[in-house]
Simulated scan of single mutants.
Amino acid sequence: MKNLQEWMEELGLNHNLHLDDIPEIDLYMDQVIQLFENKFSRSKRNEDEKVLTKTMINNYAKGKLFFPIKNKKYSKEHLILISLIYQLKGALSIGDIKSTLDGINVKIEKEEIDLEAFYNSYLTIHTKNAESFYEELKLHAEEVNEGIGNMDDPLLEQILMIASLANISNMYRRAAEKLIDELPASLKK
């Protein structure tokens, strides 16, 4: 496998929408898409992949993943929620994302949450997670190298690493789903 540090940088795990990236004015859908495309384009798997589309945003709105927009414009709070959706959709179903965000949406509508403070906490945790991931990835690479033994076959080493990472990913996803299932019943509409 290529240089681990280089490989990690190619993953674009540290790319996030920060609060100072979000304009203080409400944005139209095309502006939202452009903002997300500019911010997350390095984290796309390939050039054909879209970070965000009109259809995605409309589906999120119809699915009530965020509170209703006003005058076809998206507020800073909407952009924060769309950013969370973007991050969550890689691991969770849309239904699970809705269950997860329902409580936040209720608190936003009741003005019971400092969403910017919550999002900053998320960004801090995200940064720490990326740092931990790099350290864990080094350990997994060593374990795979030991597991492959004297076979000395780069293809088998790569496949073993893929299987290991997929296995770990499934464990984390299942743990997240268990937490979603334990959310208060009042949030599961």
Rank of each mutant, 00 (worst) to 15 (best):
I82T: 01
L123K: 01
P154Q: 01
E47D: 05
K107M: 11
A61M: 08
T53L: 12
K39M: 13
K62L: 07
E24I: 14
E135L: 15
N71S: 09
I159N: 11
L79G: 02
H18T: 11
M8Y: 15
E116C: 00
L115M: 11
K188E: 11
G95H: 13
I80A: 00
Y86S: 11
K128R: 04
L137H: 13
E47K: 00
M1R: 03
P184R: 03
D20N: 13
Y172C: 00
V106E: 10
L187W: 14
E143I: 10
Q31R: 04
A175M: 04
M29Y: 12
F66C: 01
K50R: 12
H126S: 11
E77H: 04
G63W: 11
L79H: 04
S43A: 13
G147K: 15
H78G: 04
Q87M: 09
E37G: 14
R42W: 08
K54S: 14
N120L: 14
L52S: 09
N71E: 10
A163H: 09
S83M: 04
L17T: 09
K2A: 14
N129K: 14
T124W: 06
I113E: 08
L137S: 15
E77Y: 06
L4N: 11
T53I: 13
I85H: 10
H15C: 06
R173D: 05
D48A: 09
K50S: 11
L179D: 01
E6M: 08
L187M: 09
N14L: 15
A91F: 10
F133H: 03
A185W: 08
G12M: 08
I168E: 08
L13R: 04
P68Q: 00
I168N: 03
S99T: 02
N105M: 09
E116Y: 02
G95M: 13
L65H: 09
L155A: 06
N170G: 07
K44D: 04
M171R: 04
T127N: 09
V32Y: 07
M29P: 13
K62H: 10
D48M: 13
F67N: 02
F118T: 00
L123W: 02
L101P: 05
K98T: 05
I57W: 15
S93K: 12
S121A: 14
T124P: 04
S75W: 02
K76Q: 08
N71F: 07
I69R: 08
Q87R: 00
K128W: 03
L115E: 10
S132Y: 11
D20C: 05
E24P: 12
I159P: 13
S75Y: 05
Q87E: 08
G95R: 13
L65S: 03
K98F: 10
